[in-house]
Write a protein that binds this DNA or RNA. Structure first.
Length: 470
DNA sequence: CCACGTACACCC
DNA sequence: AAACGGGTGTACGTGG
């Protein structure tokens, strides 16, 4: 096990670099190309009958909603910009906006929500949330639109894109994302739904050949690990050295709670051995202490503002004032992570001075906006600059891991192992069943050893026959 | 008819 | 007043 030192040589002749280093980046990007070629070649198997069935179920749901809402919509007609009346179409966001805000006036005494650009009414689900109980047809219409999206983007389209072996070959592009991430298109397999129940069912359709298994291995908190490494923030280092839960520990540090006591309580609740009082105590911790810390922790590398935090918390049902959000970020969160704040400020200053920022391998991101006189533009550049070192270095880790795994996979051959997908901090492979457990350790070890840092880089793995199980 | 911008949804 | 980094795909509406 190698230990970190500045500039040390890594696999494939790549090295850590604190200056712009295009040759180093070329080596890194070329090193992961063979595995990208494997992704393209193998493709992932799709359970087409399952997906077709899911598509039918979604259509049924939509038809029910159409029947339910018909009585409210009736013969309402949409007025075009030229004043003509045309039949109402539930799929059009403009038709919907006119019906909701001009016919039904669901906004009541509130201002009509407008989109940032242009002068259209905003009808995103987030904005519609408060209007859901203002008219009985609104929840149904929202659900119809969500279903339409799933159908149009996934369930009705993916079955048309498979090869004769029911396998889906996405195209990975290594040259579009400025942070060195890969992107996926035709179809995009990096945005398959996971959060909602119906959406996650789409993942069930992704599977493996009989006698094989899907293996997923992903880095744990890789961007935060890089942030801890770069900042040398003592609290962050301590959390990752001890292998603690980042957000639990943050909440404990921010609110002065004992981490071990919280973990004990957490375990009691998980094992269903907690009293009513203990359960309620833990739920309060989760909602009012852990959740804000988690939200800030998630947003901090994106340069989240108090307004951004407020919006994020609101979507979780927590309504804080701007002042409280502001105070929480500056006085609570950054009071604990002082060196993390110092690191971000260093990156902002660097970007302001040079109009660019480097990751830990010398990948350069140009941010000329950081020098702008206009505050909005400048802050936009600074947020990009603040995020780039972590997002880009994290890509470095997985790209080197891919390069390290390439000869191992080649030696085993495609009767044993087939690399299928990379999803930013995660690799998905198809492995013959009797070998998958053993191989999961190999993949994890290569990922963890790819970029030795001043703290352990951890990864975890899952095995299943369906993507939804991973 | 096509190309393009916008809004919105999905992912890490 | 105040949107949070990186992506792709879809439908819609407009303008050539």
């Amino acid at each position: 096990m190698q230990t970190y030192e500045p500039g040390m040589e890594l696999y494939g002749g790549v090295h850590y670099s604190d200056y712009p280093d295009p040759d180093n980046i070329t080596k890194m990007d070329l090193g992961c190309l063979p595995m990208i070629a494997d992704f393209h070649k193998f493709g992932i198997r799709l359970d087409i009958p399952f997906l077709n069935n899911l598509n039918s179920r979604i259509e049924t749901i939509q038809k029910e909603i159409e029947l339910e809402t018909e009585i409210y919509i009736g013969s309402y007609q949409y007025r075009t910009s030229k004043g003509a009346l045309i039949p109402f179409s539930i799929g059009s966001r403009d038709h919907l906006a006119q019906l909701l805000f001009e016919e039904w006036k669901v906004q009541g005494d509130d201002p009509v929500p407008l989109t940032p650009k242009g002068r259209r009414f905003e009808v995103s689900e987030e904005i519609m949330e408060p209007f859901k109980d203002r008219h009985p047809a609104v929840p149904g219409i929202i659900e119809w639109h969500k279903s339409e999206k799933l159908r149009n983007t996934y369930t009705s389209v993916l079955p048309l894109q498979v090869d004769s072996d029911s396998r889906l070959h996405t195209q990975f592009n290594a040259t579009v994302a400025s942070t060195g991430r890969l992107s996926s298109s035709n179809p995009n397999l990096q945005n398959i739904p996971i959060r909602t129940k119906l959406g996650k069912e789409i993942r069930y359709a992704f599977t493996c050949d009989p006698g094989w298994r899907l293996l997923s291995a992903d880095y744990s908190q890789i961007e935060m690990v890089w942030a801890a490494h770069r900042s040398q923030d003592p609290t962050m280092l301590d959390i990752f050295r001890r292998g603690q839960d980042l957000h639990d520990r943050t909440a404990c540090s921010v609110f002065g709670l004992d981490y071990e006591e919280v973990q004990a309580l957490k375990k009691l609740v998980a094992d269903k051995l907690a009293t009513v009082a203990q359960t309620s105590e833990f739920n309060d911790f989760k909602q009012f202490q852990r959740l804000p810390c988690k939200t800030v922790g998630f947003g901090v590398l994106y340069g989240q503002t108090a307004e951004g935090l407020q919006a994020s918390l609101a979507s979780e049902g927590i309504f804080w004032t701007i002042e409280r959000c502001e105070e929480f970020i500056t006085q609570k969160f950054f009071a604990v992570y002082t060196l993390l704040k110092a690191m971000l400020d260093r990156d902002y200053a660097y970007a302001t001075r040079y109009g660019l920022i480097c990751d830990e391998f010398g990948r350069v991101r140009l941010v000329p906006e950081a020098k702008s006189q206009l505050k909005r533009i400048r802050n936009e550049g600074l947020r990009k600059a603040g995020n780039h070192p972590e997002q880009s270095s994290a890509q470095g880790s997985i790209k080197i891991a891919m390069a390290r795994l390439t000869p191992i996979c080649r030696k085993l051959g495609d009767k044993m192992v087939r690399p299928l997908l990379q999803i930013h901090d995660q690799l998905i492979l198809e492995v013959i069943a009797p070998f998958v457990e053993e191989f999961s350790h190999v993949v994890r070890e290569e990922m963890e050893a790819a970029t030795p840092l001043t703290i352990p880089v951890r990864s975890s793995s899952d095995i299943g026959e369906r993507w939804a199980e991973l």
